[in-house]
């Protein structure tokens, strides 16, 4: 069997110039994974009921996208085209198992709340989509930065949506009561929190509200960034 020759371009790869900065900042706005590329919607809908869940999920996804991009890009010249998906998925599944076990050890209550959706990072389209679209054709360092950028672009939308849903659905942010009557309001009516008349809107906790909130986020994003408007 002939030896596989790895033909890496002889350039200094660990630079961080203008092109590399663009790789990280582009997914935050012009090429956002959720609002522009339509990738990774499922988990964005399910974990955004509470802000702390969304933050943990954003960190986990950024870790997985960055390192799966890095490893796939390192192996890209050796992977036969027909079995590429299985190879990619084994890399992703390994990284997700690492994240799952780490989270289980570090913060068990959050792990219990996220349980299924940590597993479903494997099927988060952002990870696979970036591997297919970017890491299979670019060098490891650039792919790593692309992974970080896309993870952050996903995280920022997740945090915005979670903040809106938690604030109006539960009247709190990070479990800290902000609007609506406090729990001891019934016992002590003289102590009224800010906007004490607000009654929690249960629709915001249900699934359809995530759709509405993301729809409105897309509306605002495209009204502000005109070049993203869908012409067709």
């Amino acid at each position: 069997m002939a030896e596989v020759k790895v033909a890496e371009p002889k350039e200094s790869i660990f630079t961080f110039g203008k092109a590399e900065r663009k790789l990280v900042t582009d997914p935050l706005n012009d090429n956002n994974p959720i609002t522009v590329q339509v990738l990774g919607i499922c988990s964005a809908l399910a974990v955004t009921t509470l802000l702390n869940k969304a933050i943990v999920m954003a960190i986990a996804v950024t870790f997985v996208t960055a390192f799966s991009n890095l490893f796939t890009s390192m192996l890209r010249t050796g992977i036969p085209k027909q079995v590429r998906m299985i190879v990619q998925l084994v890399i992703i599944a390994t990284l997700v198992t690492i994240v799952e076990l780490t989270l289980k050890a570090v913060n068990y209550p959050i792990y219990k709340e996220l349980s299924v959706f940590i597993g479903l990072i494997i099927t988060n389209c952002i990870v696979m989509g970036r591997l297919e679209a970017y890491a299979m054709a670019n060098n490891p360092w650039k792919s790593f930065l692309d992974g970080i950028g896309n993870g952050l672009g996903y995280g920022i939308i997740l945090i915005i949506v979670a903040a809106i849903r938690e604030l109006f659905g539960k009247g709190s942010l990070l479990d800290f009561k902000i609007i609506g009557p406090t729990a001891d309001y019934v016992l002590n009516t003289s102590e009224i929190s800010w906007l004490g008349w607000y009654a929690n809107n249960n629709l915001m906790v249900l699934f359809p509200s995530a759709m509405f909130v993301i729809g409105i986020v897309i509306w605002v994003h495209r009204a502000w960034n005109k070049k993203l408007v869908d012409i067709s």
């Binding site: 249900l206 995530a210 509405f212 897309i218 408007v229």
Partner: peptide
């Protein structure tokens, strides 16, 4: 449909409404 909402944005709102119907 308002221009920024065309396409994807509208699909999200429609899916939300369909989700409510399926509830």
């Amino acid at each position: 449909v308002p221009a920024p909402l065309r396409g994807l944005g509208m699909a999200f709102l429609l899916t939300g409404l369909m989700g409510m119907a399926f509830m």
